Each structure stands twice: as C-alpha cells, then as structure tokens.
Simulated scan of single mutants.
Amino acid sequence: MTAPAAPAPGAHANEPHDASIHGRLNWLRAGVLGANDGIVSVAALVVGVAGATTATPAILTAGAAGLVGGAISMALGEYVSVSSQSDSQHALIAKERRELEEEPEEELAELAGLYEQKGLTPETAQQVAIELTARDALAAHLETELGLSEEAVASPLAAAGASALAFTTGALLPLLSILLLPESIRVPGTFAVVLLALAATGYFSARIGQSPPLRPTIRVVAGGALALGATFLIGSLLGTSGMV
C-alpha cells in the first residue's frame, strides 16, 4: 500500500499549499453564486405570476421559461467571459515560451531581478532563479511574472456547463416548490423554502471565503425576500386590476 505523500517542507499537514487551490475555490464560489442566481430569479418569476393567477399551467410555463432562458444566458455569458480570459492567458504563455527560447539569458536575469524585488539578496535571487529555471523555466516565469500556470487556464466549455448546471440546480427548487405544494400554501411555502435555501447559499459562500457567515447570510436572505415581495406585489396588483 502506498504511503500518503508527506507535506512539503514547512507546510502544515492540514493546510493546502497547492497553487490550484485558489482556482478550485473560485469554481466553488461561482457554483454557489450561480445557484443563488437561479433561486432568486426563478423564485421571483413564479411568485410574481402566482400573485396574478392561480393557474398552474401559467406558473409552470413562466418558471420553465425562466429556468431555461436563465441557464442558457448564464452559460453564454460565462463562455464569452472565460473565452476572453483563456485567450489572453494562452497568448501570454506563448509569449513567455518564445522569449525563453530566444532570450534565455535575459529571461534568467529578469527572473533574478523579480526575486530581488521580493526582498532577496542579489546572490540568493540569482541562485533561486538558476535552480527554478533548471527545474521548469516556463512555470517559474509564469508564476513569478504573471501569477499564472498552464494548468490553471480555464476551459470555456467547462465553465459554461458548470454555470448552467449551478443555475438550473438553484432554479429547480422554487419551481418544484410552487408546483408541488398545495395551492393554499404554495406562495408562503415557496417563500419559506427559498429563504431557507438562500440562507444556506449565503452561509456556504461565506465559509468558502473564510469570513464570518452571519452578515453575508442576512444580506442574501434580505435581498431575496425583497425580490420575492416586490414581484408578488406587482403580480397581485396586475391580477386584481384585471390586466392579466
């Protein structure tokens, strides 16, 4: 049986030092926020329609349209955004690789200079630059100059799929709640379910960011309650006015 890998020198056993941890945390945070968007937008939509009419087909149509349209919009937005970021990162990586091939001595001096700027003595900076260049010159320059790594370049398709999935997961909660609950309690029941779900997303978002969860959770719940109350009021006014 293979023994577990020992932590890097100077690292705590229970503290991750993998450079990709920041990328994974960003993905997790984006997933929580995407689910939060799905919860709020579809909940506000179905509650607003429910304020105007009790007809289940109308509520289902509005909710399904909001879910599908929102998921596609989130996916497209994420795809475009991450594609631009990915293109820029690939261009920077290609530029750095070309410079290392054409001007290795200048690049070594540049790397040593960067470590001097971080506070190392010229002799130590030169030795560090030589050793890191011998190990993986491109990785050393990407990390030190640009804060990049080849492994951390995001996939636009993966980002789009994750965004759509997170939104859909969140949007299904209010849609199923308002469709499955008895008509007499469907609106207050959906309010309760949505606010509990928002409290959970606010809590987990705060925990991911390693911040105290109370204030972020209150903000998310208060914002969601405001959105639900406003759309239900508008729907009720339209319904009683005979406009719908």
Rank of each mutant, 00 (worst) to 15 (best):
V128K: 09
G224E: 09
L120C: 04
A129K: 12
S236D: 10
A44P: 15
S241I: 02
L233Y: 04
G223M: 05
E116C: 04
Q210S: 15
A91N: 01
T121L: 10
Q210V: 13
A227W: 05
E131G: 08
A137I: 02
L45I: 03
S73I: 01
E99W: 14
H17T: 15
P7I: 00
S184C: 08
G38W: 07
G38C: 07
E116R: 09
E145S: 05
H141I: 02
L138C: 00
A5W: 11
A222T: 06
L114P: 00
A134P: 14
V46R: 01
L120Y: 10
M243N: 10
E151R: 13
S184Y: 12
L28S: 15
A35Q: 04
A58H: 13
A129H: 14
P122S: 08
P174K: 00
H12G: 08
G70P: 09
Q210H: 14
E96F: 06
E131C: 11
E99V: 12
A164I: 01
V187A: 12
H90C: 12
A64K: 01
E107A: 13
A6P: 07
S155M: 06
G229H: 05
S83H: 10
A140N: 10
L138K: 05
A55D: 14
T217E: 02
A139K: 14
S81K: 05
T144M: 12
L45H: 00
G34P: 01
G38L: 02
P7E: 02
A171C: 04
T54L: 14
R97K: 09
A65D: 03
T168V: 12
Y115H: 06
A222I: 08
A11G: 06
A222L: 10
A192L: 14
L76T: 11
A192V: 09
A200G: 10
P7S: 01
V68C: 03
F167C: 03
G48Y: 07
P122N: 07
T190H: 07
Q210E: 15
S155E: 03
G239C: 00
T201M: 08
L33E: 07
R98G: 00
D136I: 00
E110M: 15
R215P: 11
E123M: 09
P216L: 11
G38Y: 04
R219W: 11
S163Q: 08
S155K: 00
S184M: 10
E110F: 13
R24V: 07
T54C: 13
I39R: 00
G239R: 05
G10C: 11
G229K: 05
V47D: 02
E150A: 09
A162V: 06
A192I: 12
L111D: 04
L25Y: 11
E143D: 13
E15P: 13
S20Q: 15
I72K: 01
P156G: 08
G223F: 00
A52I: 07
L238Q: 06
F191R: 09
Y79S: 05
G170N: 00
G38S: 08
T190A: 12
L108G: 07
A19N: 13
V40D: 01
G31F: 08
R219F: 13
A200Y: 06
A55C: 02
G66K: 00
L238G: 00
T240G: 09
E105K: 12
A112N: 11
A225P: 11
L214F: 15
